Amino acid sequence: MKKTILITGASRGFGKIWAEAFLKRGDNVIATARNIDSLKDLAEAYGSSVLTLELDVTDRTQTFEVLGKAHAHFGVLDVVINNAGYGLFGTIEEASEQEAREQFEANVFGTLWVSQAAIPLMRNQGHGHIIQVSSVLGIASIPNLGLYNASKWAVEAMSEAMAAEIKAFGIHTTLVEPVGYSTDWSGASAVHSKPIDVYDGLRAVVYEELKNMPFGNPDATADAILKVVDEEVPPLRIFFGKTALPWINQVYADRLSQWEAWNEVSVAAHG
């Protein structure tokens, strides 16, 4: 059945790939970006099936206006995909106040504002699906991306609570947790803190590990997002990429082992 889908950050990467995948199969798409010049090709290729709107998700007022306009244009909003965001590279000590705040403004508050704008529209129509693009780094952290990790952990916690709050209204919630993909997420889209030389050795190790990772093909995610959107009872969480589950299995095994090892102290602390 034809759906109407709004995607933030649709100018490139996953957002652009997914927008085209939906349009190719006949869905309506509201493609948003801070600069809609990057969406001209979609508008030219798909005509009335696509609505391109300028949106900076850190602007709460604009976010509500844009989602209201999108809903009014097509008369329905079946799916909202919170894809806008970026990565901040740098250790915790290196990040400036402005960099830290801007990371959370985009990744956390942007996701919050879009979710808040979508919920009443979907509640009033009696159905909907909010998809949050999180990350495998929203479950397990790595050095030199601590504030990005933290922003995605916040999205995970916020969305899990939201899922329980809105399910009675017929609104589903899904957290998509990609591994590393060959997009420009770590390139032009990224921000890098001013380095402190004492972390150069650590940074070199992290970058070497990232360089040797088997990055996924972003085009391969198109079929996956279509399946998530079409599922009658979609998952709360889904990994995108083959390396996530083995890594997270080990992460959780290590966590459980440490909690078990310290359980006697934990129980005593209960009183």
Score class of each variant (00 low, 15 high):
residue 146 G to W: 00
residue 66 V to R: 01
residue 141 S to N: 06
residue 70 A to V: 02
residue 224 A to W: 14
residue 150 A to S: 04
residue 98 Q to V: 15
residue 51 L to C: 04
residue 82 N to Y: 05
residue 90 G to P: 08
residue 187 G to F: 05
residue 115 S to C: 07
residue 72 A to V: 08
residue 241 G to Q: 02
residue 86 Y to V: 06
residue 74 F to R: 06
residue 153 W to F: 11
residue 50 V to S: 01
residue 142 I to G: 07
residue 133 V to S: 03
residue 226 L to A: 13
residue 179 V to H: 09
residue 110 G to H: 07
residue 24 K to G: 04
residue 111 T to P: 01
residue 169 F to V: 02
residue 141 S to Q: 06
residue 265 V to C: 15
residue 252 Y to C: 14
residue 10 A to C: 12
residue 224 A to E: 13
residue 24 K to A: 08
residue 158 M to N: 10
residue 226 L to G: 09
residue 11 S to W: 06
residue 56 D to C: 02
residue 16 K to C: 04
residue 104 F to V: 02
residue 230 D to S: 13
residue 10 A to T: 10
residue 99 E to S: 09
residue 204 A to I: 03
residue 70 A to E: 02
residue 33 A to C: 06
residue 211 K to D: 13
residue 216 G to W: 00
residue 55 L to Q: 01
residue 21 A to V: 14
residue 82 N to A: 10
residue 143 P to M: 00
residue 189 S to C: 11
residue 222 A to Q: 04
residue 109 F to W: 07
residue 214 P to H: 04
residue 240 F to M: 04
residue 51 L to A: 02
residue 111 T to K: 08
residue 191 V to Q: 13
residue 222 A to M: 09
residue 89 F to G: 07
residue 139 I to W: 00
residue 61 T to V: 14
residue 152 K to V: 10
residue 76 V to Q: 12
residue 265 V to K: 12
residue 212 N to G: 10
residue 226 L to C: 12
residue 59 D to G: 01
residue 49 S to M: 08
residue 93 E to G: 15
residue 253 A to S: 06
residue 75 G to D: 06
residue 168 A to M: 07
residue 135 S to G: 13
residue 102 E to Q: 13
residue 248 I to D: 01
residue 164 A to K: 09
residue 110 G to K: 05
residue 125 Q to H: 06
residue 238 I to G: 06
residue 224 A to R: 14
residue 257 S to A: 15
residue 23 L to G: 07
residue 113 W to T: 07
residue 176 V to I: 06
residue 95 A to I: 10
residue 271 G to R: 12
residue 141 S to Y: 03
residue 239 F to A: 14
residue 151 S to R: 00
residue 107 N to T: 03
residue 50 V to H: 00
residue 256 L to K: 09
residue 201 G to F: 00
residue 195 P to E: 08
residue 173 T to D: 07
residue 13 G to D: 05
residue 58 T to P: 06
residue 149 N to Q: 10
residue 116 Q to D: 10
residue 191 V to G: 11
residue 242 K to H: 11
residue 248 I to K: 01
residue 84 A to E: 05
residue 55 L to D: 04
residue 267 V to A: 14
residue 26 G to T: 08
residue 256 L to E: 09
residue 12 R to G: 13
